[in-house]
Design a protein around this nucleic acid. Structure first.
Length: 649
RNA sequence: GCCCACAUAGCUCAGUCGGUAGAGCACAUUCUUGGUAAGAAUGAGGUCAUGGGUUCAAGUCCCAUUGUGGGCUCCA
């Protein structure tokens, strides 16, 4: 976090095990409980049973995790041996187990190809067959350096170990860790372990090399670029199959794929990378989403504001953005000898609305909301469809309040956030509370009050959360909310952040009951995050089959023959009058083809019309799930679909 | 930004050893008027991302540029 109010959502790359260790588990038993789905809330007795079961599962999972971890790390060693067989001059970096598998970084004389991967994989299978054992040996730093004298990366690691190590929370520890090596067959690696006992425990049908990619040594772009081979490994070949299936499924749901297939959005070279064109269908959906959110914000007591897209350099100097965020800002525009910057954030503008006159404590809390379009320079390599873009519209708001109001304000904004997310069909949440880092601005007491308020709000909201101690931005603690999608992937959407920096920098005040000026609390929040990213997530979550209330076309009328067209158009008019979005497919194609097209367009309802339906003033209803509901009277169908819409199904 | 790969019709892709471009789908026209996932025929559609170079000749080989994809703090 480099900035005063940087809160751009990151693509979730579910944390690997080591990252996890750094996050202290603060959940009490009840917060492990995930919000029950609608219509399935258990009664009290069941509730505790379920909770126990879940905790037991968690325990089993972590034991299984450890076994898998050993397996994967061992597979990484076998892979390294196979690579060494092919490239005797290879230099080795690191090869940890990660979620779903493992990787190993190498410095090789030439780039790897797909054929190389195949060759490495079959060599690995040969090595595994020989069931070599993994033997650990503790050595001195001198011995280790001698052993790895031709391996510069290993030498660097050994020197790092000599300096002292880190405990599993990432904190430095006093005593030096022991240096150990593992030997398996002809391969010796500097390694902390642990490993499986012997290679027989690695199922040759349970792993697969996936890809090769560039990766900087120690993640530092100033250091050499290595070649990283990714692999996946499982104890049961069935798990591997399932994992590969999941990858296939994810590909089908890829929002870039569906964006083309369903004509939702495009990105045009001539316009520029990371800039989204919203096509009519998704434009309509966005309009509906904005409308819904506007209504909810209005009910909840937000004020709407609109602010410009550019501001003078001095504004961004005051806010600190030119100091901390400049590399993410578009270059300035010069007008009348003044420099203007495209806004990367909305906060300074909202602050100035607040500051446009003297504020009294009686006016607070204030909540300024704006769908603010901002531009951020993202490095070309990180752009990704709608999920990582350069121009985006945040559903942004800033709350200003007096200290006594702050806990209620946090409670309110957290619940409001969950309400909005649930309305869009998300049911599983994970929250991350990030607290005061080493470098920070503001008073410690304010930090502590804010952190306490955030944590209590999380407990009251009864959603699972983890605390990332010291992981907050320098300007304030925050809650990030991640949602789990249909495939169990996590996406960060909402964020609620305190800001102790901007009120100082802009000298924001209010006059209190005592007639003195005081500093207000300032809270940033975005619920959907950004419309671009949110819709990318929605597309993947629903696989393009949006809920009826959002679907651009809610029902399509399919006349069987030309003589049914007039009746179909009649029904369509009735439905439109009832507020539905319907179309008539009166092309000359056969009914089967029309159904197929509608199905591919993932239209929720297909209404087939033939002689029988005209006779009975009905429509034959087919859902996109393939379910055939048979003939339903037109009026009854309108009522049915309106119920779906009212319930946001 | 960096590493690797890729860029051919609206989409998905083929194009052999360098010899002036192909399929399926989609689209248009015509025929077909049908009961729950593709009826048929015909037709139109391409400066092979852009700019250089090599060559008698470049979609194909080389270089650069632009864009896209997979990666790039999970510590031995």
């Amino acid at each position: 976090m480099k900035t005063t109010c940087e809160w751009k959502p990151e693509i979730s790359k579910e944390s690997g095990s080591f990252r996890y260790q750094r996050i202290k588990m603060m959940n009490n038993a009840s917060s492990i409980w995930v919000e029950p789905r609608v219509n399935s809330s258990p009664h009290v007795g069941e509730f505790f049973l379920l909770k126990e079961k879940q905790m037991a599962n968690k325990l089993n999972e972590s034991m299984a995790d450890e076994k898998l971890h050993k397996l994967r790390h061992s597979a990484a060693h076998v892979m390294a041996q196979a690579v060494l067989d092919l490239f005797p001059t290879a230099k080795f970096a690191i090869g940890p187990a990660i979620e779903n598998g493992f990787y190993y970084d190498f410095d090789l004389p030439r780039p790897l190809s797909a054929e190389d991967l195949e060759q490495i994989e079959s060599r690995m299978k040969e090595i595994i067959k020989q069931r070599h054992t993994f033997e650990k040996q503790v050595v001195s730093a001198e011995e280790a350096k001698q052993l790895f004298k031709d391996q510069p990366y290993k030498i660097e690691l050994i020197e790092g170990l000599e300096q002292g190590g880190f405990d599993e929370h990432g904190d430095p520890i006093e005593e030096k860790p022991e240096i150990s090596i593992y030997k398996s067959d002809t391969f010796i690696d500097l390694c902390r372990g642990p490993h499986v006992d012997h290679m027989g425990q690695i199922n040759p049908k349970g792993f697969k090399l996936m890809s090769v990619a560039g990766a900087y040594w120690r993640g530092d772009e100033k250091r050499p670029m290595l070649q990283r081979i990714y692999g996946t490994a499982w104890s049961d070949p069935k798990d591997l199959k399932e994992y590969l299936w999941k990858i296939e499924e994810a590909k089908k749901r890829d929002h870039r794929r569906l964006g083309k297939d369903l004509d939702l959005f495009s990105i045009n070279d001539e316009i520029g990378p990371g800039l989204i064109l919203w096509h009519p269908k998704m434009g309509l959906m966005r309009k509906l989403a904005e409308h819904f959110c506007d209504e909810e914000h209005m009910k909840a007591g937000y004020d709407f504001v609109y602010t410009p897209h550019i501001g003078k350099a001095s504004l961004w100097e005051t806010s600190g953005h030119l100091g901390f965020y400049k590399e993410n800002m578009y270059a300035p525009i010069e007008v009348d000898g003044q420099e203007y910057y495209l806004k990367p954030m909305n906060c300074p503008f909202h602050v100035h609305i607040y500051k446009s006159r003297i504020r009294s404590y009686k006016e607070l809390p204030m909540r300024f909301a704006e769908n603010g379009t901002v531009y951020r320079y993202e490095r070309s390599g990180v752009l990704h469809g709608m999920l990582r873009v350069r121009g985006l519209t945040q559903d942004d708001a800033h709350h200003f309040c007096v200290p006594e109001q702050m806990p209620d304000e946090i409670d309110f904004v957290l619940n409001f956030s969950l309400h909005i997310l649930r309305s869009f069909g998300f049911v599983d949440f994970n929250a991350y509370l990030s607290t005061r880092p080493e470098k920070f601005v503001g008073e410690v007491s304010r930090w502590e009050d804010a952190e306490e308020a955030l944590e209590l709000a999380l407990q009251r909201a009864d959603i699972p959360y983890q605390v990332d101690d010291g992981g907050g931005a320098f300007y304030g603690p925050k809650i990030d909310i991640k949602v789990k999608d249909a495939l169990g992937r996590e996406w960060q959407l909402s964020t609620i952040q305190f800001d102790f920096n901007l009120p100082e920098r802009f000298d924001m005040t209010y006059v209190g009951e005592d007639g003195q000026t005081h500093r207000p609390y300032m809270i940033h929040r975005a619920l959907l995050g950004a419309y671009e990213r949110f819709f990318g997530t929605l597309i993947e979550h629903f696989g393009g089959a949006f809920p009826v209330w959002l679907s651009p076309v809610q029902a399509i009328l399919i006349p069987i023959a030309d003589r049914h067209n007039d009746y179909a158009h009649n029904v369509a008019e009735k439905m439109k009058a009832a507020g539905l979005r319907v179309q008539v497919d009166d092309r000359t194609d056969r009914m089967n083809a029309k159904i197929r097209d509608a199905q591919n367009q993932k239209i929720p309802y297909m209404l087939v019309i033939g002689d029988q339906e005209i006779e009975a003033d009905s429509v034959a209803v087919r859902k996109r799930s393939g379910e055939n509901l048979g003939a339903i009277e037109t009026a009854a169908f309108i009522e049915m679909i309106n119920n779906d819409i009212a319930e946001k199904k």
